[in-house]
Design a protein around this nucleic acid. Sequence first.
DNA 1: GTGAAAGCGCTAACAA
DNA 2: TTGTTAGCGCTTTCAC
Lengths: 342, 342
Amino acid sequence: MTQDAAPRRSRRGSGAVTLHDVAKLAGVAPITASRAVNTPKRVSAEVLKKVGDAIARTGYVPNLLAGGLASTRSRLVAAVVPTILGPVFLETVQSLTEALAEQGYQVMLGQAGYAGTREDALLEAIIGRRPDGIVLTGIMHSPEGRRRLLASGIPVVETWDLTPTPIDMLVGFSHVAVGQAVAKFLYQKGRRKFAVVAGDDERAKRRLDAFRAAAQELGLPAVRLVVVPAPTTLRSGRGALAQLVRDRDYVDTIFCSSDLLALGVMTEAHALGIQVPAQLAVVGFGDLDFAADLHPALTTVHINGAAIGRQAAQFIVDRAEGRQVDPRVVDIGFSIVDRQST
Amino acid sequence: MTQDAAPRRSRRGSGAVTLHDVAKLAGVAPITASRAVNTPKRVSAEVLKKVGDAIARTGYVPNLLAGGLASTRSRLVAAVVPTILGPVFLETVQSLTEALAEQGYQVMLGQAGYAGTREDALLEAIIGRRPDGIVLTGIMHSPEGRRRLLASGIPVVETWDLTPTPIDMLVGFSHVAVGQAVAKFLYQKGRRKFAVVAGDDERAKRRLDAFRAAAQELGLPAVRLVVVPAPTTLRSGRGALAQLVRDRDYVDTIFCSSDLLALGVMTEAHALGIQVPAQLAVVGFGDLDFAADLHPALTTVHINGAAIGRQAAQFIVDRAEGRQVDPRVVDIGFSIVDRQST
DNA sequence: GTGAAAGCGCTAACAA
DNA sequence: TTGTTAGCGCTTTCAC
């Protein structure tokens, strides 16, 4: 603890070990120590060893805030979801986090809320961190928000959708195609009287509209619609079926906008003594973990959420490393998993 | 675009608007602009207006990396979960994120993996960001990890448990008390032959041990045990009941270490024609969203995960603002929600 | 209430 | 391959 004789201005930051300390201990210049840490190939074996020893001895952990400021590369990526409580995007966030972690990036989580309030404050908080990328899942449709993102110059990946006018990069699938495919699939199964139970959510609405249009084209009767608030729950699924029954609106098939809703419909069917699939076919969306193991097993639309996360990570890392990203739009597709509930 | 006459070394960072630009436009010193942004009360109304106008005109967004470096307060909090895919901790992460966002902090997400591998790399990544706090949920039990955390000097909140030797701060509940309470509860319901289906997880194990010990003290026969891999799933719940039946190990009650397992047990019971609760009582753990709406509704242990998140946020903000935190351990308790499945 | 100077810990640019 | 210098954009300390 050698104090300076004239300690005019002491700041001494956090008091943690710095690269300077390591460099001094190793007997090299700070920048050399920096290279030993970040680009070990561009440094002699001897220096590498000395610096490595010094790090081990001091327990040095690089300050990424300082590094990010100096290099204008924060190695931070923001992921924005409506809410973390919806199980839908979790797989994407998980694989995104993992793929990025492998490359030395961390994920900052932002919850926009379905309402779209706070969007502005959230954007401010995100942009202020100067992340190397922003991954959006199912949100940010206000023109003002899009403008700010664009203005920030930060690479943006939109996911879980295929919009005609992406902000920047895009990995998702067509909700319209899903709606059409499910209608066709059910028609081929011999089902004729459809209902839809859907969360009050823009993309669910697009699936549903396509579904209804396809049903109409197939010459089927009008599709009955029950809208429930987002986020969807088992409870609202139960309520929706109860309502259909109460209205004596008999249908032979229900397409739900989430697996949780489907589970709710099936639960209510069980409680009411309605046989699935004999009397009622149920289709979900998402193919959550539990869908395959329900009784009866749930037919549902499978989205490879993990692949979406990985692709998003790839996009961002590519950009951060200065690589050209092309194409900037990836259609990850979907598949209908045919199980017992239909 | 006035270029300097002799641009020796241009670095020009990110090219974004800086506080300097704002200050110049407002006709004040940078530090004054800084005060206008961060401590508006310590600035005259006139300055406040000029700076506000300049910010609006330029679209300035403060660089929190730079601010964090200078002030040694990153306003970043790391939250570590085993995996984001387990629904158990989500409510905690959600309320933590929200409570912190209100105070201007962001959450960085870390996934440790149940295996405990990568723990070291994760710690390095976290500490390197110099977060103002670290919230741990259900992990970090390696002595080496604890040592590093301690050495980093960063405030740590452990959650979802009540350990005898916390690293720093702690908000949770007693898993032993849960096990005992559930055993007593079931005994009072007239149940006598217990089984446990539990994930291979340290804390589930503690609940279960306490549960078995309590059953023994009540003079009940030995508790049958089925251990399934973590994270727990509906499928492993189904498998567990199937196994019990296959082994002709008849029990009248199953205590599951998660609601998902309980749902699996109930699903399998339904498939096998076993009546719940008449022939078999089922108790879950977690009181997830769907538990109340199952058929029959699931009796389970309720943990106020949101309260845990809020308390953790409080702990960290208090510390960051230099307040004394006392007490540093909060028992959030639990409750048994008595529904139809028992 | 406002400002000048210094520096948080690191890396880009340039030079040797 | 290594080192020197000058910042990255902000806030602290000290002075008025």
